[in-house]
């Protein structure tokens, strides 16, 4: 167990170094990526802030509560962008071109290689901006010391749920061969999760909380931070992660069984 953990960490270290070494060889892209991310943060915050010029609350939340939620999601996004997002695009490409063959030959689990291989180091530079925004709006809604301590683990919890759901979705690329449509759907999924659960009408809210637990990703943790009696959200998230992981392993194995490798 320990030795296999060491093995994976060792491999992961080189995923990081190779990604950094690649990213730094493209300087202009690197800078543009940072700019794009920051631009994106502010465009999201701006549009929410702008909405509040025309109203006082959306659902039960006021301006700063909603902006805090948005920043929470932005922080999940930042880690997600830095650590995972490139892999989803690459997976479609690899399946289409048959380059996945090489990944399947390696003596580590294929899920690990497929979804953890490529990192985007530019997110390291944008992460502080996202933290800064989260801290700013956190202090605006008067978080207490233990709330601050809760934020990092809750971010990770939300991130894990988002990723497992995306892994499951991306496994379908094995059947579709082309990844564009799935990545498109994946981004739409993220979009849905970027808004708090209460904006959705009753039925949809239930479907996307219980059926496909998308809305738990950000709304779960933030509801809990704002009101500690909402602990059931967190229990739901843990359960969702466990069940989704089981589903993922099952359909992943099924996908690999019928992978037919583009001929050379």
């Amino acid at each position: 167990m320990i030795s296999s953990l060491k093995h994976y960490l060792g491999v992961y270290r080189y995923f990081v170094t190779t990604s950094v070494s690649e990213a730094l060889s493209f300087r202009t892209s690197f800078i543009l990526l940072v700019l794009m991310d920051i631009f994106f943060y502010f465009s999201v915050l701006f549009s929410v802030d702008f909405l509040f010029d025309h109203m006082q609350t959306i659902g039960p939340w006021n301006r700063y509560q909603l902006l805090f939620f948005i920043c929470f999601m932005l922080n999940i996004d930042t880690i997600h962008m830095g650590v995972f997002s490139s892999n989803f695009w690459m997976l479609g490409f690899k399946i289409r071109t048959g380059e996945l063959d090489f990944d399947l030959l390696k003596p580590t689990h294929s899920i690990f290689i497929c979804f953890f291989r490529y990192l985007k180091p530019s997110s390291l530079l944008t992460a502080p901006v996202a933290w800064g925004l989260l801290i700013y709006y956190g202090s605006k809604i008067g978080l207490l010391w233990y709330d601050w301590l809760l934020i990092p683990p809750l971010l990770l919890l939300g991130l894990s749920l988002l990723c497992v759901l995306e892994f499951i979705l991306c496994t379908s690329m094995f059947w579709l061969v082309e990844g564009m449509g799935i990545n498109f759907l994946r981004m739409q999924m993220q979009q849905m999760a970027r808004w708090p659960d209460f904006i959705y009408k009753y039925t949809y809210q239930k479907i996307f909380t219980i059926g496909v637990p998308l809305l738990l990703i950000g709304s779960g943790p933030v509801h809990f931070i704002l009101d500690k009696s909402n602990w059931h959200y967190l229990a739901g998230m843990c359960l969702a992660i466990v069940i989704s992981t089981l589903i993922l392993v099952k359909i992943w194995n099924k996908a690999l069984r019928q992978y037919d490798s583009a001929s050379s």
């Binding site: 579709l176 061969v177 082309e178 799935i182 759907l185 849905m192 808004w195």
Partner: peptide, 22 residues
């Protein structure tokens, strides 16, 4: 790629429905 095409047609509509409407 049939299904991809389908997703690109239906995707924006569904998202519109779910997010913007709500």
């Amino acid at each position: 790629y049939r299904l991809n095409f389908f997703l690109q047609v239906v995707g924006p509509f569904l998202v519109f429905f779910f997010i913007k409407y709500n």
